[in-house]
Write a protein that binds this DNA or RNA. Structure first.
Length: 271
DNA sequence: AAAAGCCCCTGGATGC
DNA sequence: TGCATCCAGGGGCTTT
């Protein structure tokens, strides 16, 4: 469910409300991808300083240490006064004097991990290899093109790997490559500088627009208030195999690329 | 070092 | 209706 825009929209929907809250309780449900790595009770009494995002991770800063939250493939957060009994897929609660932050994640690919600092070994293992933030000021053409030059695998895989640029998931990778007119199978090191610039712009546009629209992802995304993404960003190619391209009417193609589905227009996107 | 595959897990859609 | 199969927004880990 969540790519960068959904994670960011989630963050925006509760960051202000949880800031300065005091932790009053922690409930750990079924196992997530990784254990918390800390005694839950020791979090009680800590103060929440704020919520940041790095790639698709949410960083909940505490007055001592921080919690890394990842929504995996099917996770979502809720924050509010509703303290009703957890349902089948509610696997982690952080209760505070300003509301309950609850992770719901049917597939349990998500996780909540406590780390003493952002530079601790556990934190570095998860965050250390990450590439540049696409909506930040360091996402410039020179660095992006240089990053692509180092890689011989397909451009789509490089985008998904997240070590050049982060936050671009399977949907937005297909969409951005369409907007840039680049075939997903093109080797990254063969993307010319002008095309890298088109792609850079496409990534920024598609992600920023999705954040602005409140998280556009298909199906079931909702923010920490439970509000649905408006889903006003009509996909150009994603999940549209066999349907006519919205630009040229060619039929959109599907292929499997690195265990994931990829969609592209054979006419608009060149190798 | 980089690239390619392998999994973790549940649920919905589809097909027989 | 039941059962099998395939697919799903991620990403760390292991193997080439």
């Amino acid at each position: 469910m969540p790519e960068l825009p959904e994670v960011e929209v989630t963050r925006l929907s509760f960051a202000d409300r949880i800031a300065q809250a005091r932790v009053t309780g922690v409930r750990v449900g079924k196992d997530l991808r990784w254990p918390l790595g800390y005694e839950p009770e020791l979090l009680i009494g800590r103060r929440v300083l704020g919520v940041r995002r790095r790639a698709k991770y949410l960083l909940v800063d505490l007055d001592q240490g921080l919690l890394l939250w990842h929504l995996g493939m099917s996770g979502s957060l809720r924050f509010g006064d509703d303290r009703s009994a957890p349902t089948a897929h509610d696997h982690f609660d952080l209760d505070t004097d300003q509301g309950l932050l609850r992770l719901n994640d049917p597939r349990r690919f998500g996780a909540v991990v406590y780390v003493a600092s952002e530079t601790s070994p556990q934190a570095l293992k998860l965050l250390g290899h990450l590439g540049v933030e696409p909506l930040g000021s360091d996402f410039d053409l020179k660095a992006f093109h240089h990053g692509l030059k180092q890689r011989r695998s397909a451009i789509k895989q490089v985008l998904l790997a997240g070590d050049v640029v982060v936050g671009v998931g399977n949907i937005y990778a297909s969409e951005a490559l369409f907007l840039a007119g680049i075939r997903p199978t093109l080797r990254a090191d063969r993307v010319s500088r002008p095309r890298a610039e088109k792609l850079r712009t496409a990534i920024v546009d598609v992600l920023a627009r999705a954040v602005q629209k409140g998280g556009s992802t298909l199906r079931d995304f909702s923010n920490a208030d439970g509000q649905q993404g408006y889903f006003q960003l009509e996909a150009m190619v994603y999940d549209r195999a066999g349907q006519p391209c919205r630009v040229c009417d060619s039929l959109i193609r599907w292929r499997r690329q690195g265990q994931r589905s990829t969609y592209y227009c054979p006419t608009c996107q060149k190798a």
